[in-house]
Design a protein around this nucleic acid. Sequence first.
DNA 1: CTTTAGACATTTTTT
DNA 2: ATGTCTAAAG
Length: 816
Amino acid sequence: MTDASTPLIVGGPAPSDARPDADLLQGLNGPQREAVTYRGQALLIVAGAGSGKTSVLTRRIASLLRTREAYPSQILAITFTNKAAGEMRERVHQLIGQKADGMWISTFHSACVRILRREAEQFGFTKAFTIYDSGDSRALIKRLVKEHEGDSFGLTPAGTQSRISKLKNELADAESYARSANMSDPAERVFVEIFSSYQRELQRANAFDFDDLIAQTVYLFRAFPQVADVYRKRFRHILVDEYQDTNHAQYALIHELTRPVGSDAEPFSVGGMMIFEADPSTGSGTEGGPASLTVVGDSDQSIYAFRGADIRNISEFERDYPGAKVVLLEQNYRSTQNILSAANAVIANNFDRKDKKLWTDVGAGDPIIGFTGYSQHDEAQFVADEIESLHRRGIDYSGMAVFYRTNSQSRALEEIFIRSAVPYKIMGGTKFYERAEIKDALAYLVAVANPADGMAVRRILNRPRRGIGDVTETAIARYAAEHGITFRDALANSAQLGVGPKLQKAIDQLDAVLTEATAVMLPASGELAPSTSVTEGLTLLLTKSGYFDALRASKDPQDEARLENLDELIAVTREFARNNPDGTVIDFLTEVTLVADADDLDDASGSVSLMTLHTAKGLEYDAVFLTGVEEDLLPHRISANEPGGPQEERRLFYVGITRARKRLHVSLAMTRAQFGEVTVAMPSRFLQEIPGDLIDWRQSPGDVNGRGGSQSRALNARGRRPGQPGGGGNRYGDDLVPLPKRAPADPSKFPNRIPAKVRDNGDMVLAAGDRIRHDDFGEGRVDAVTGEGAKRVAHVRFDTVGPKKLLVKIAPIAKL
DNA sequence: CTTTAGACATTTTTT
DNA sequence: ATGTCTAAAG
């Protein structure tokens, strides 16, 4: 196989000179080069954190194109998130320019949507199908659970939804599940009934849920081999990033695509081997041979087992694809040695893994900083102070990130950041597209784009309030069922519903608005809707339905924000039209459903990023703050019962550590308010796994728990245990035992407790030179005041705690 | 049909 | 502590 690179040189455009992709190999180490240049049927790149995996992947694609081994249209690159897909596209574009256009670089879900849209008619859907996000499918499942009285068998909507999702990820349907389930259990029977009616409803609504997008594509390929062959012929090079996070359905999809053309339902390994042995140069243009497959992954970063990711997909890759080449990337180009040593030490505690050690040649770097706060706000204040201090030393805000295990932890951080005037943005979190008003507006669009989708029509039926309630909704549904028409079409026959004249008029009006919008967005066949049609249609829907008026007339102060959100949505439609001149309503809805966040635009905007550890995967920052490193939070309490749970939590911690380039901070709080109650927290077991000499505790758990200062100083392990080489051991002594049972001290004594009500200093006038008193920080002198209006920020030098920034409007301060 | 008060669960992670 | 859901009143 070593001569696989020969055709690369011969086939290139510059035969006598250096290989045409020589520049692409510049600056790469040996294994990286091999990962770029290897040609063969299957390649597994085991890429440790920060080992330049994206660079290798993009250069590999660029190399395939540059050497004319592949047309762009023959390349399918799968990433995990839309953001990663965008980045990869961008980087390939940088390497080889325009030629990159025409590749499919997308997520599993987007790729499947593209395939399904083309083939929908093959199996009972139309091109206009819509996609149910988890909220939509939960709403449907909720209704079905109620209809089947699932609650009396212990079935909750949430539980049912997750079971269905898990089954779909295993490519099981209601029927196949029923065969293996214990059907003498009535609860199982009801579950199967709900599952199958859920599927029936989706089909009737001409809709797929997230899991269906993958699973149904697999079914499509299996049921229609000639359809599958179209894509097998087309995609000659398939590359999958984050392969350790693929679930069974995704794995099966890749398998289907990498079968030899015309192989029908033959077992892959047989067909694959035969072709592979007969003609090792398959892949580049050979008709009929299986596509070449490249997967990149790191089993130490597998953090999605809870939603069906199967680590075996990567660990058994060599068995699935006999003859596969494996390349290991272990040199790390991101972090300092101290950070890597901590990461290596932590992950080494996971048994059942191939030993792998990240290394770097950039030197030890700064020690890891540790801090233990009294409360979550105290911890947040440490983070804010440290961020300010780093910022003053020249690190850009956008180069810093704060990670946490659960979204709810962001609140305390936010509160402190606002008060300290630290610019931040929250990645993920409460999503724009999950807000009620946005979902309403989108439901209006769906009602027009996919009239078969009854859920969407039901949603907007009484939004804004039209006096149409449960009773009327049921009447319409019954009429639709009796006449075999859709819920949407039933609206047109309001006279026959047997409802009062007032209701009849309301229904007519809604029907008219929808019809009018349909004319705008989906003109009669043949005509192409102008690119402004989505913007126009949405504005029309929201205006003529009375949605805008209802919000404007409302007294609820939140409704003003809702109006702004809708304005933003309209702005999104404009942006969409600009980027997709031929984009239809359907395209818009697809993009909006599959692209969870649109917040990557302002990456360089100079704010600190806040996100969960899961969101952090694949990103890197100069300075990282890992917060809430406490038992029951990281590892999370719920993980304790799940098989492999604690190990997955450790990988999560590992992912967090390895995001840091230069500075890593780990912090925790001794008490944490949860469910409105203050609970005592214990340091995470993972902290013990970091060699003590790597952590410089500004304030260790022992300093805080108040059981004698000198003893607890032992926790500040730096330099105190010269005899210890820095691995394993009960370094913290008894500091990890639970905190004293006595109730935590009066919470009001804790620094930085956030008052329930927001303080408002109104237009307090401050100027440089003023002296002030702060509730927590004591007295200080104002150095400068910057910003305008409500965003005025005072830069204060406090006598005891040093310089801080405060948001003047809400800071607990008084002028002296 | 809408409003309201109180019960209730929620906090693991995401396409 | 906060937001969602349910039941009863208007």
